[in-house]
Design a protein around this nucleic acid. Structure first.
Lengths: 136, 136
DNA sequence: TTAGGACTTCAAGCCAACTTGAGGTCAATG
DNA sequence: CATTGACCTCAAGTTGGCTTGAAGTCCTAA
């Protein structure tokens, strides 16, 4: 319906193909993550590349990167740095973060497993025990 | 210096004992999590119980509960529900949440481990591959 | 007497990642 | 010619857990 040449897409078409709301795409643009090819009468005109860039962003988000991380991935390296090297560095750092999260979650799991067997009648009893750092 | 009877504490003393800022204690009060015993000339007066209640809150936060969860722990059960039963129910639910988080983190780890070995020269190549849901 | 310190209230700010809403433009269509 | 629909911008709202700041009260010590 809308696009005449399949290679020039409006934000609506891009949003459909990428599975995002137009507002999200504009937001990413404000952060410098995706830029339209040009503007026509004020409207953003994209190429297929934008859809691919958005797929990259989706992948990265899904892998645990923040939008700020993604900005660094795209713009935070010397221009001649290969994609592979960028991913390697960023992913290695993120994996360390995940390990920390896992340790945090394991600690929570321990606390929860212990407290699940609590025999206190009142929470005040419980609280008193915690203040002396027993119980839990 | 400040408190005459050791059993009546000002917010400053409570904050020191609990390791929290007074503003956090006021915030918890606004949420209904800790109440002062009374007020004296507008000032909050607490008993030692408040310090213990704050230790309970700290424990629960540390175990992964939100302040809203903690409110439910304190007020969201029939009055005659034992502390043990409350913890059991809440902790069981939270453990399920943690399992979900762990699965999420494991999925991220997989993505990161795969992408770490990426051989693409440019991110655009990479993006193209992702759009076809290969690579990664 | 005055300065200090501890306390009070209430509103607003911070972070992330968007969404929502108001108000406006523009082209195609009936 | 008027309406629809897709788009535009910019400001403000959302959630959670607080912190910060302004402006005021009150007591005590020098």
């Amino acid at each position: 319906m809308s696009q005449h040449e399949a290679s020039e897409l409006g934000i609506g078409e891009v949003s459909r193909r990428a599975g995002l709301r137009p507002s999200a795409i504009r937001y990413y643009e404000a952060l410098g993550l995706v830029m339209p090819l040009t503007r026509s009468g004020g409207r953003r005109v994209y190429s297929q590349d934008a859809v691919e860039r958005l797929a990259l962003i989706a992948f990265a988000k899904n892998a645990g990167f923040s939008l700020d991380d993604i900005r660094r991935l795209l713009d935070g390296f010397p221009e001649d740095t290969s994609a592979g090297a960028r991913w390697n560095e960023m992913a290695t750092a993120k994996l360390a973060d995940l390990d920390a999260m896992t340790r945090r979650i394991d600690a929570m799991r321990d606390s929860l497993t212990r407290i699940r067997g609590c025999r206190c009648i009142t929470l005040d009893q419980c609280a008193k025990a915690m203040a002396k750092s027993r119980c839990g």
